[in-house]
């Protein structure tokens, strides 16, 4: 009786010991070595490419943010976009959007009537907000990204917002346009990805511009 049991137990014991060895090697040593190299050679990137103001992090340049007006005290109204900031794409990460603890997409199907309605409403809202014809609003402005944390918008959507941002901040539209142009990044190596504008970095620089005297 004891023989078959022992024969069954032996490979399992070896398996457990081997698993523990690999846990130490690939589960502890490997990630710690990579962390060590990363923190030594690329501390900024490995730490999340944080943007600091007055010694405090205010953003990660990789992670999009909401740029909404502060909600009135005690009221939980849906957030209203702040005309003085460039607006990011719609987000499905968390109820308010851009919540890194709840990354994700809407997962709505290509023929889901709710999605079609939402896209149409977003188009009208963005067109009214930026004072452009609805037909000119680009696709990225009316669709939620895969992560819900997309920091980028298309150059078309960025330029569309220039007049509104300039008016709200009392800046010369040409100056804001130049700022956007500086933030348009092309394709990596000329052919990877798509041109875009990082809204977080753009807004960070925008926030440091003094408004013209009224």
């Amino acid at each position: 009786m004891f023989g078959p049991l022992a024969r069954l137990a032996r490979p399992h014991l070896a398996a457990l010991r081997m698993l523990l060895v690999f846990t130490a090697l690939t589960g502890v040593v490997y990630p710690l070595v990579v962390t060590g190299i990363a923190q030594t050679a690329f501390p900024g990137r490995a730490g999340g490419a944080l943007i600091e103001e007055h010694g405090r992090p205010v953003a990660s340049s990789r992670i999009g943010q909401n740029f909404t007006l502060p909600a009135p005290r005690g009221r939980r109204t849906p957030a209203v976009p702040d005309p003085g900031w460039f607006q990011p794409r719609p987000s499905a990460a968390g109820p308010a959007g851009y919540d890194p603890t709840a990354s994700g997409a809407s997962n709505l199907g290509p023929n889901n009537p709710d999605l079609v309605r939402t896209v149409r409403l977003r188009r009208l809202a963005v067109a009214a907000f930026d004072r452009v014809p609805p037909g000119r609003v680009p696709p990225d402005a009316v669709t939620a990204s895969g992560s819900g944390l997309d920091p980028d918008i298309s150059p078309a959507y960025a330029y569309e917002q220039v007049a509104r941002v300039a008016a709200a901040r009392r800046l010369a539209p040409a100056a804001v346009r130049r700022l956007v142009a500086r933030h348009v990044h092309g394709r990596t190596l000329g052919f990877l990805g798509r041109p875009g504008v990082n809204v977080v970095e753009l807004n960070h620089e925008l926030g440091h511009r003094p408004a013209a005297k009224p």
Binding site: V137, D140, R194
Partner: peptide, 21 residues
Amino acid sequence: VSSSAGYAAGGMMEGKEQRFG
């Protein structure tokens, strides 16, 4: 193709990241 939401948005960008396209 055959996507009413894609037509409405002008492109199949729902659920996709701008940087990858």
